[in-house]
Design a binder for these strands. Structure first.
Length: 777
DNA sequence: TTGTGTACAACGTAG
DNA sequence: TTGTACACAA
């Protein structure tokens, strides 16, 4: 244990110098439980920490403590999180606490740390250190190719579905050989297992790994190479895991392997978690992992943090009352010392999502005028499609905003194209990248030419770029294509060579210019092409922050934030999932409607468990707010271009009335607002009965009805329309009839298709709407 | 080989 | 409403 110890440099900063005092100041602000969690450095430790109880603070202070007590170098500490957001937050806070670090702790997501480990030992898992990390998009394209090769009908067995199955298998830590035949039977009549094996073989050939592989291959590496594992056992003296309740089986195995350096009762592993914030069941998280911790590590200390320092009493009460509706909790109660309740939690009923965005925008401006910073406000949505409305509104208002997660920068077409060029230069075996760009910009290389390339590649067992190199020396291609491809290959050689001498970001710019890619967008007269060019510039600019092209590519595939202008004052827009671990003075939670939140698919797929997970998500959302929580629900929402009337979320009814203030924006019509019913404050319908109006139930009813031979249907939903489309004969309305619609007003029926009516509205113009929204005029 | 028109599914969440 | 896959014409 007599390791060399980082000595603080004299005068390196106020905090560092405090390390030398007997009762270090960094412990001063902690309550007894927090302090215990920080100071219990030896042996396994489980910290059950409710929302806002200073969990991140404990973790970061603990790291500072380990350093100041000279128990380890920075680089001997491993700190794992689940999201990039959380990892960044932790890095930032460590940096504030310990400005001068000797050796950075290994801080990051499971995936980024795994990637780092794998690059060191790539050969041992049949990869080269330059391997590409495939994202979901690449993954699906690869699966499509495999399905085609196996003559599996993609209509019947969608690639997307198999990607999901693969993911689930990998989350459970299964290699192809581990997949039981009962599971394999799930896809393509039992060919799932074989597909998995083929898929993995393709990945190796491409020198690529998908997200799941990062963990799985790491586990395989450790298992098959005890000496490598031992190396990491020696290296990592202290391990810390954030949000442990979100770990899935693969991550659990990964951690356990790394913790095996010492007998379990002595392992210096500290996990922090909160069963009430477990929101990743859908990607295989096992809450059991946290419950099992004391069994896995006998003699583990357990510390509960229950004192909340974040939110007002009212917010806390709203959150606690809501989460109490869940069964199967470990049971924690949050306390606050604040006597004052603070502002009420508000629920606003609005007409539709557009008005919702307008309303939120107005409030934000109002707070801004009162001197509050935009950085202190956030909009947390259930699903990323909700973001667009807010973005559009904020653009017209000129309100600064930043989107975290959601449709990501790197998912844009121009970025993916540019990255494909860069990937291919860095990694010539990247066939997916090759296929993406051979004909972008248009070079006259169509499907038939690509087919020849693919066949050659397969026969010669070489990557596409290499196959092309061979083919251009033969007569097999038409002269025109041959010349084009020869030039392209030469260009790639030149770029790769240039990388040795010229900084990579300069080469990148040259690649985009010389390939004609930039020119393609300059010539494009579409209104969004200037924006695309701007994005490309941004991409090249961001490369400057990295040492090498490889480093940049890894960052882009793992860390998907567009972290532009962190310093600027801006409202954050993000999903509830990515908001976990963050906090804001003011939090807006839009879209509290049945079907959206709780999300219908969650209920359909996982029933009660799904509902409880949604409720935990609601709990996470509310507890993000320090001073103000503003909920809203839209009475109408457009789904797939059709208007659907919405029912208030049952979660609204589960909030304690005494801390909640209800209002609307005055644009509702009678009968559709809140407050009209016996069982609900928000809707005339019983919240539990309301599930019978959800799409899933409608589908079930429609199927029943169509089996019985149809009949007049009055229920709404487009799926109903599809299954009982009687060619327009079943409508209750006639062409030319005068009708009324709640949103659009009066109009005349000009076309009937099943239960969809096209109506020429007097005020709103021509719209296609569902019959069920129409009254006789 | 490229461009256009039609049909049809998709809007669930992380890395 | 938007994006994508496929069929067919130029």
């Amino acid at each position: 244990m007599a390791d060399p110890v980082p000595l603080p440099r004299p005068g390196a900063g106020p905090i560092t110098s405090q390390f030398n005092r007997r009762a270090p100041d960094y412990l001063a602000g902690l309550n007894p439980e927090q302090r215990e969690a920080v100071e219990t450095t030896e042996g396994p430790l489980l910290v059950l920490a409710g929302a806002g109880t200073g969990k991140t603070r404990v973790l970061t202070t603990r790291i500072a403590h380990i350093l100041s007590q000279r128990l380890a170098w920075g680089s001997q500490i491993l700190a794992v999180t689940f999201t990039n957001k959380a990892a960044n937050e932790m890095k930032k806070r460590i940096h504030e606490l310990v400005p001068s670090l000797d050796g950075l702790p290994w801080m990051g997501t499971f995936h980024s740390i795994s990637a780092r480990i794998l690059r060191h030992h790539a050969e041992l898992v049949d990869l080269k250190p330059s391997f590409t990390i495939l994202d979901t998009d690449d993954q699906i394209r690869l699966i499509k190719q495999l399905l085609e090769a196996d003559n599996i009908d993609e209509k019947r067995w969608p690639a997307r579905q198999f990607a999901g199955i693969l993911d689930a298998w990998k989350n459970r830590g299964w290699l192809p050989k581990d997949v039981p035949s009962s599971e394999s039977a799930y896809f393509a009549n039992g060919r799932g297992g074989k597909l998995y094996a083929d898929y993995q073989a393709r990945l190796k050939a491409l020198n690529a790994a998908d997200f799941g592989d990062l963990l799985l291959e790491c586990i395989r590496l450790f298992r098959e190479n005890p000496e490598v594992l031992a190396e990491y056992h020696r290296k990592f003296k202290y391990m810390l895991v954030d949000e442990y309740q979100d770990s899935n089986t693969a991550q659990y195995l990964w951690l356990r392997l790394l913790a095996q350096g010492k007998p379990a009762p002595e392992a210096n592993i500290c996990v922090v978690g909160d069963d009430d914030q477990s929101i990743y069941g859908w990607r295989g998280a096992e809450v059991d992992n946290i419950l099992r911790f004391e069994t896995d590590f006998p003699g583990a200390r357990v510390i509960k943090l229950e004192r909340n320092y974040r939110s007002t009493a009212n917010i806390l009460k709203a959150a606690s009352t809501l989460i109490a509706f869940n069964e199967g909790r470990l049971g924690k109660t949050l306390h606050t010392d604040t006597a004052e309740g603070g502002e009420m939690v508000t629920v606003t009923s609005v007409w539709d999502s557009e008005e919702e965005a307008r309303h939120v925008g107005e409030e934000i401006e109002q707070y801004q005028r009162a001197g509050e910073s935009l950085n202190s406000m956030a909009i947390l949505v259930r699903a990323s499609f909700q973001m667009r409305e807010f973005e559009e509104r904020f653009i017209t208002l000129g309100l600064n905003y930043r989107v975290i997660g959601g449709p990501r920068f790197y998912e844009r077409r121009e970025i993916r194209d540019a990255l494909a060029y860069l990937r291919l230069v860095a990694q010539p075996a990247d066939d997916l990248a090759f296929e993406r760009i051979v004909n972008v910009p248009k070079r006259g290389i169509g499907d038939s030419t690509v087919k020849v390339l693919l066949e050659t590649a397969r026969h010669q067992n070489v990557p596409l770029l290499a196959a092309t190199r061979m083919l251009v020396e033969t007569e097999e291609l038409k002269p025109k294509q041959r010349t084009t491809l020869r030039e392209l290959v030469m260009q790639f050689d030149a770029w790769a060579a240039r990388l040795e001498a010229v900084p990579h970001y300069e080469v990148a710019e040259q690649i985009l210019d010389e390939s004609g890619y930039t020119g393609m967008w300059q010539a494009d007269k579409a209104p969004d092409s200037p924006g695309r060019l701007e994005n490309l510039k941004e991409l090249v600019r961001s490369m400057e922050e990295f040492e090498t092209l490889g480093g940049f590519l890894e960052h882009i595939s793992l860390v998907m934030d567009r972290d532009s202008g962190e310093a600027e004052d801006a409202v954050s827009i993000m999903t509830l999932h990515s908001a976990k671990g963050l906090e804001f003075d003011t939090v807006f939670l839009p879209g509290w409607e049945e079907g959206l939140f709780p999300h219908q698919r969650s209920l359909d797929e996982s029933g009660r468990a799904g509902l409880e997970e949604e409720r935990r998500l609601a709990y996470v959302g509310i507890t993000r707010g320090r001073r103000r929580v503003r909920l809203s629900m839209a009475q109408n929402r457009r789904i797939h271009g059709l208007w659907q009337s919405a029912i208030p979320s049952r979660f609204l009814d589960e909030l304690p009335p005494d801390v909640v203030e209800v209002s609307d924006t005055g644009s509702s019509y009678g009968g559709y607002g809140y407050g009209g019913g016996a069982t609900s404050r928000f809707n005339k319908a019983d919240p539990f009965e309301s599930v019978y109006e959800t799409p899933g139930w409608q589908r079930a009813r429609a199927n029943q009805a169509s089996r019985r031979g149809g009949g007049p249907l009055t229920i709404e939903g487009e799926l109903v329309a599809r299954s009982v489309d009687l060619g327009g004969q079943s409508s209750h309305f006639a062409l030319g009839e005068r009708v009324f619609h709640l949103k659009f007003g009066y109009g005349e029926v000009i076309q009937i298709e099943g239960n969809k009516l096209t109506i020429d509205f007097e005020k709103a113009g021509t719209k296609k709407v569902l019959e069920s929204f129409i009254r006789k005029g």
